[in-house]
Design a binder for these strands. Sequence first.
DNA 1: TTCGGATTTGACAGGTTTGTCATGTGATCT
DNA 2: AGATCACATGACAAACCTGTCAAATCCGAA
Lengths: 206, 206
Amino acid sequence: MRRKSALTTGEIAQYCDVNFRTVLRWIERGKLRAYKLPGRGDNRVRIDDFREFLEQHKMPIPELFTSPRRHRALIVEGDAHIAGSICHALEHVGFETVVAPDGFRAGTYLGKYTPAVMTLDLQMPGLTGVNILSFVRATQDASKTKILVVSAMPAADLQQAMFAGADDVLQKPFDNNQLVEKVKSLVAGSTVRVPIYAQNTEAVCS
Amino acid sequence: MRRKSALTTGEIAQYCDVNFRTVLRWIERGKLRAYKLPGRGDNRVRIDDFREFLEQHKMPIPELFTSPRRHRALIVEGDAHIAGSICHALEHVGFETVVAPDGFRAGTYLGKYTPAVMTLDLQMPGLTGVNILSFVRATQDASKTKILVVSAMPAADLQQAMFAGADDVLQKPFDNNQLVEKVKSLVAGSTVRVPIYAQNTEAVCS
DNA sequence: TTCGGATTTGACAGGTTTGTCATGTGATCT
DNA sequence: AGATCACATGACAAACCTGTCAAATCCGAA
């Protein structure tokens, strides 16, 4: 079954545990964004709009909408050996993993998979670590992705990574259990929403 | 995926997140314009008609059809000076430009903006040029993006870039006019076989 | 605490659209 | 050419919209 990209009023009514008439009124009053089908004027609400609505009103978000992203981890790591090891560890605790062996792929995969968490090797060739951190933080779509910096750099540099936007750091060499613990707590903590949205830094030439 | 100038009912059903039976009814009632194939009477909807339909009903337009795509150029270039120069030249002939100063951003922007054409500096720090070429070519969403490799590498290496998937190459240093010409012809060549009715007359500057 | 007014939500009915299923036939692929 | 897939059609069930009215909730005042 294909994943739906839009919901009907009835479905939303179920999720919110209210009468569908109420959902219609929300839409009427512009509290919930929706578009209409040409026929009878059936409303469809895009999942993203629905999520935003839920967050805005601090309503509980059904597992259904958080789960697929929640268990996805992006591993940005140049060393295939280490990457494989991380993969294995995370998959073992239920994550769906994707490995990006270079910066370019890290970028595409981040946008494509919107993982819940991303482990980032700052010393990959071609990655100007700190820049990436702040860039990701400023990117709306990815701002919710938790970042765990994994690096062999000295502790002072790791501290700086935290300032730049990392959610946590882990010094190489590390133990897989350590990593799994950190990742898990990052994902668990991500249920708390920070309402501050970084402004979108556009790179469009003017 | 094959290039299409018209859509079937099934495809529209997918895009609209609706049952294909419903799409048929829309067509029956004249809400969505379509023409029939001679055989069984299969419906085909021209892309422009579909887009008009979506706009008319304020329905979200799938990324796939967002119009300006054709005129978007992604400039992957580490040297801000050169990047600015390319930007300027391309904007002058009607492109919307985006600059990616590193591999990571190249990746995110490629996915985000799905540009019609991408100029790629193979010697950027951290870009393992040839890998990227083949990666992009293998990536479904971006496979239509034309790639112009811009590099100071010797001609033999550029030749290899062609084998790896580049659509054209340009040796540094280059003249802006040269670049513009190449980009324009790449975009022109990619003509998505837009049928006659295409009113996109704002097309590439002539 | 209790009361009344204002607002929001739930319930019901009628009419219409949309989804589902089964079937037949033309496309499409190898 | 044959096998598989996608589409069209018809009928029926399910879901949705509109309008109206009753019930529940909220809020300030007595």
